[in-house]
Design a protein around this nucleic acid. Structure first.
Length: 882
RNA sequence: GGGCGGUUAGCUCAGCUGGUUCAGAGCACCUGCCUUACAAGCAGGGGGUCACUGGUUCGAAUCCAGUACCGCCCACCA
């Protein structure tokens, strides 16, 4: 780099270095004697594209991994993608639909061919995008949850749990998504309060022949379209209002099917009419009542959410259309007593937003009780730590109430359930068809391969991603506890940190802990850092429909990846939602430019001459300041306060290094800088670059390569994190006092519009003012300092810096009236302050109870205040005499 | 309905086990500067009854209780 441009342009720099890092395989990790530091990426959906949430998450991951690498650890960040069963399948279905092909018309094999093709075309785009962001993933280790080895791991796991007796198949009421045509787990259902209606319907009592009488009862329902599936009317046995109904049969309106009146505690007497229609096929609670009372189950809604022929009326109508129509029919038939507006929680599918239909079907479940108990202990014992800690409560609550996990999905894209059915309907569970055949033949020797039929369902995506921290290293291990972990797994597991959103704490985090404990006997990661959700600056969630989600790649193209990374981190204090504002990224870009330009200055220094006192002081001061900040930054990192770490570095660079240090050592125009200071200045710059590198990898590599001769293949990526040295607290104190003085003088200058070049005379009263800092004050404030015991003339501006009275002489430029007024105001304030302190000190209970140190500071306050008052009074007197 | 968390400057947030002259930071804002690294900059400045009400204490932004509002999680009274 010969000439440095006045402005930093990120685009070329970033591509250049990323390409070089890749070429040198700097991101690749193999087990060795160093301490490992491991992160597995939260695998994005294979067909996903980068959004701001990914940017935040992966920036944090990259900061952690780069930091660890510079700390001398063997850093390994395993990237990869998730096959995302429902999401991907629905995308493929949509694409086929565009092509005029319906999924129904395809065989499973044909469909999967399309799906794989789609995956080949669109898969992994997001991984390419992560490179633009600067992520230092070990790309050679890229994994996909549905690649053969990982799929095998999933199947083995299923077989393992089945043989352990923890996986069972059962007919249960599940959450059915009529759009995706699959069951979804409880966690994939979002309940939202929804406006609907409460329909009060008359059910006439039947006589002994089953004919309607003129007596009736009234039930209240939100789902009148399901009345044809009613199996009973239920009342609370304690409800005397309904005792007359005991033993009676009532007739379902419109179809006049007779059903019994039963009694069950479940019914709330004071809700609705106290009469509940029981529809076992279409409501979870009703199903349970049905089981208790042995009621028949009549399923009148098909997989698409339409009424089937068992409904007898409105056959083929969608459930919501049917609802409208049947209300009208009921009204006409005189069964509708009244309609009330009613708001109740309704379950929606997280994926398709379709209203979930409780549906009875055969599904596979994994028992959660033992797994959840173990996983709870992992976190409670602190072996896995949650940051922020508040998520422990949520976690505990869920773990203590975990219900069995519905792991089957009625989809094709995913790992197919390894259960094979015999012609008699029984089944065997084995890892593959051959083993299944053997197992089947053990039951019935006549069975041939073609007699076996594999289960049509696939497994929930999370049933594969919960193995991720294990399977990315050694896919053989899950399901085979006897398999000795391979070298990678033994070395990299458990991983160190996991960065993810709190929205998948149950889906993924909890289950990884379960799998980790089950298959490895220990936690999969030490820390889980939960980020917030990225929102726009109005606080709205980013979404496609709102169009408030910027394209990260455009931002990177415009501002540079470093700027985007900084921008995201600046607004992301741990555990809070992130309010994204492009202004933050602009701030990041400004910071890049600041670094760039400071380097132009540093690089441009000519070397020569001897070290000035100011320079010597500044060098010593910055050494301490740097050490102090490094210690603070390390502490922030330990606590995962990444934005605080960044801010500390930001201020160190901008305020301390640029505004203070460089201004202090900067020689007069045309003069050289002495060799010692020059060396120190470069060395500081080098330390600063290393400190910032994890956050801003590109610009730091660019400048680090230029600041000194580097060996072939040497990168800042492996340069050690600067270590904190000694901190000279007294020096920092003195320097701070000096800079406050400078600040005050500059203030005087500013107020009176005195040119920066014009040298002022500064009188400082008090011999204790540190002499060593005087040259600094003189240079930085462009003044001549004189220590004195008393001020003779009042021609100028007086002020206090801490306990020092100071005075800038300004002949003829001062309004004495104003000065007097100011001094009197200050005196008044000081007197009040003193009174407060004295009130405290004269309070015996205070002096008796408060620790000595606290009392001591109060005494100091009193003394300081007294001396200030004395000075002020003298000043006022002088002003008045003038 | 149950649980958890929050309320500090215009905005986003720090403020650890009560006590350094404690009310802070960044951004935004105001004033003055094209000063020979940087106007994506430099120098300076204003701004808050720490949600409200009580309590504990010599002393409360900090601890306790209640109130109001906000957010999140869990939960299908049909």
């Amino acid at each position: 780099m010969k000439e440095l441009a006045a402005k930093y342009s990120a685009a070329q720099v970033e591509d250049k270095w990323y390409g070089w890092w890749l070429e040198k395989k700097f991101f690749h990790s193999e087990p060795d004697s160093r301490e490992p530091y491991t992160i597995v990426i939260p695998p994005p959906n294979v067909t996903g594209i980068l959004h701001m949430g990914h940017v935040l998450n992966n920036t944090l991951n990259d900061v952690l991994i780069r930091k660890a690498r510079m700390d001398g650890k063997n850093a390994c960040w395993v990237p990869g993608t998730d096959h995302a069963s429902i999401a991907t399948e629905s995308k493929v279905v949509a694409k086929l639909k565009d092509m005029g092909i319906s999924k129904d018309s395809l065989t499973r094999e044909q469909f999967l061919e399309h799906a794989w093709q789609w995956k080949e075309e669109h898969g992994g785009i997001i991984l390419e995008q992560l490179r633009k962001l600067g992520c230092s993933c070990d790309w050679d280790r890229t994994r996909f949850t549905m690649e053969p080895a990982l799929s095998e791991a999933v199947i083995n796991t299923f077989v393992y749990f089945y043989k352990k007796g923890w996986i069972y198949k059962g007919v249960r009421m599940v959450n059915w998504d009529p759009e995706a045509l699959t069951a979804v787990s409880d966690d994939e259902v979002i309940h939202r309060d929804t406006q609907s209606h409460f329909y009060h319907l008359k059910y006439y009592i039947a006589d002994s022949e089953g004919r309607p009488t003129d007596k009736y009862l009234v039930i209240a329902t939100t789902r009148p379209e399901t009345i044809m599936a009613d199996a009973a009317i239920c009342v609370n046995p304690a409800d005397e209002r309904h005792h007359w109904l005991r033993g009676k049969q009532v007739l379902i309106p419109l179809i006049n099917r007779a059903i019994p009146v039963i009694e069950d505690d479940y019914v709330e007497m004071d809700f609705g009419t106290g009469c509940l229609k029981v529809t076992p096929a279409h409501d979870v609670h009703d199903y349970e009542i049905g089981l208790r009372h042995n009621l028949p189950v009549l399923d009148i809604i098909d997989e698409h959410g339409r009424l089937n022929e068992k409904a007898r009326i409105l056959v083929g109508e969608d459930r919501f259309v049917a609802r409208k129509k049947i209300v009208k029919m009921l009204e006409e038939a005189g069964n509708l007593v009244k309609t009330e507006a009613y708001t109740s929680p309704v379950g929606y599918s997280e994926r398709t937003n379709a209203v979930i239909e409780p549906r009875l079907s055969a599904q596979w479940f994994l028992k959660m009780e033992s797994l959840a108990a173990t996983a709870l202990e992992t976190v409670e014992s602190g072996r896995t730590r949650f940051i922020p800690e508040k998520y422990m409560n949520t976690y505990r609550h869920w773990m203590e109430n975990a219900r069995d996990w519905c792991i089957s999905r009625q989809l094709w894209w995913g790992q197919r359930i390894p259960a094979w059915y015999l012609p008699d309907g029984s089944f065997v569970v084995e890892a593959n068809a051959d083993a299944a055949l053997k197992a089947a033949q053990a039951i019935n020797p006549d069975i041939k391969a073609e007699d076996l039929r594999q289960d049509e369902d696939v497994l929930d995506t999370w049933f594969s991603s919960w193995l991720w921290p294990i399977s990315v290293f050694d896919p053989l291990r899950p399901g085979h506890p006897e398999h000795k972990p391979n070298a990678d797994l033994a070395y990299y597991y458990p991983t160190n940190d996991l960065v993810t959103g709190p929205d998948i704490i149950f889906f993924w985090v909890a289950r990884m802990i379960m799998a980790g404990e089950e298959f490895m006997g220990r936690e999969p990661f030490s820390n889980v850092y939960f980020t917030g959700i990225v929102r726009d600056k109005l606080g709205r969630k980013m979404s496609k429909t709102l169009g408030n989600s910027p394209d990260p790649l455009k931002l990177i193209a415009e501002y540079g990846a470093d700027a985007v990374r900084i921008g995201m981190l600046l607004c992301s204090s741990a555990g809070n939602d992130i309010f994204y504002d492009e202004a933050q990224i602009k701030q990041g870009a400004a910071f890049c430019n600041k670094i760039w330009n400071s380097y132009r200055l540093v690089k441009g220094f000519a070397v020569g001459g001897s070290q000035s006192e100011v320079a010597r002081l500044a060098v010593k001061w910055f050494e301490s300041k740097l050490s102090q900040t490094i210690a603070a930054v390390e502490d922030h990192y330990r606590k995962f306060r990444i934005s605080d770490a960044l801010m500390a570095i930001y201020k160190l660079f901008w305020d301390d290094y640029c505004s203070t240090y460089l201004e202090a050592v900067k020689p007069a125009f045309g003069e050289p800088l002495d060799a010692d200071t020059h060396a120190a200045t470069l060395s500081f710059f080098d330390s600063l670059l290393r400190l910032i590198h994890p956050v801003m990898p590109f610009i730091t590599e660019e400048l680090w390569q230029d600041i000194a001769e580097r060996r072939e293949g040497e990168s800042i990526m492996f340069a050690p994190t600067p270590k904190a040295g000694e901190v000279d607290a007294a020096l920092l104190e003195d320097f701070a006092l000096a800079m406050e003085t400078v600040n005050a003088v500059r203030g005087v200058r500013n107020q009176r519009n005195i040119a920066p070049k014009e040298c002022l005379n500064l009188l400082v009263k008090g011999s204790a003012f540190p002499d060593a800092t005087i040259p600094l004050v003189e240079k930085m404030a462009a003044c001549k300092v004189e220590k004195t015991e008393a001020f003779e003339s009042a021609q100028g501006v007086g002020f206090m810096v801490r306990t020092y009275e100071m005075f800038v002489s300004l002949d003829g430029m001062v309004n004495l009236e104003e000065e007097l007024e100011k001094a009197e105001k200050e005196l008044e304030h000081q007197l009040k302050f003193l009174a407060g302190v004295r009130a405290k000190l004269s309070n015996e209970r205070f002096t008796a109870h408060a620790p000595a140190a606290v009392v001591e500071t109060e005494r100091k306050k009193e003394a300081d205040s007294l001396s200030k008052i004395e000075s002020l009074q003298a000043k006022i007197k002088a002003l008045k005499n003038n």
